[in-house]
């Protein structure tokens, strides 16, 4: 995450603000939370309850989220994530999305990731199931590093 950590994260980590380059939602079953823990990188978790104030991102970030519901696109994106993305400044800083789900849900496997990818015009970087296998952890770890490096190179060129 060296690419984005231009300012020391500590100073700016006040209250609802976060400069983490990984922001995620996980419900009380905590599968996604356990996956992110295994990544062992700095990450910020969105509030579990919609009634709580959402986070404000300060730096570019990748969003990790599970799919819930998903009957013909309805209710697939958790309300807490909708609340977070309804904030225009958060939308401006999202660079990619990683979907969590379960292939047993068939056509709606990781649908929430697709929806956000289209709505925010960012790539759906990866999909994994439940709390992810060790291979998923390795791939996301490496993939994210490469992704941020490439983004910063692109910016330098422009």
């Amino acid at each position: 995450m060296s690419a984005v950590a231009a300012t020391p994260a500590v100073d700016r980590e006040t209250g609802r603000h976060t400069s983490s380059s990984l922001i995620y939602f996980s419900s009380i079953s905590e599968n996604t939370h356990r996956f992110v823990e295994k990544l062992a990188t700095d990450a910020a978790r969105l509030p579990v309850y919609t009634r709580d104030e959402t986070l404000l991102a300060l730096e570019p970030f990748v969003l990790v989220l599970p799919t819930y519901g998903g009957d013909s696109g309805h209710g697939a994106v958790p309300k807490q994530v909708i609340k977070f993305l309804n904030v225009p400044s958060n939308r401006e800083l999202i660079r990619g999305v990683i979907g969590a789900g379960n292939t047993n849900f068939g056509e709606t496997y990781c649908l929430a990731g697709d929806i956000i990818s289209v709505k925010c015009q960012v790539p759906h970087l990866y999909r994994f199931e439940l709390m992810g296998t060790s291979e998923d952890v390795d791939r996301v770890h490496e993939g994210l590093e490469e992704f941020w490096t490439r983004l910063s190179q692109k910016q330098a060129q422009q």
């Binding site: 696109g73 309805h74 994106v77 649908l111 697709d114 990818s117 289209v118 015009q121």
Partner: peptide, 9 residues
């Protein structure tokens, strides 16, 4: 970019 999906929410 993911395929287009309708969001009804």
């Amino acid at each position: 970019i993911g395929k287009a999906v309708n969001t009804e929410d």
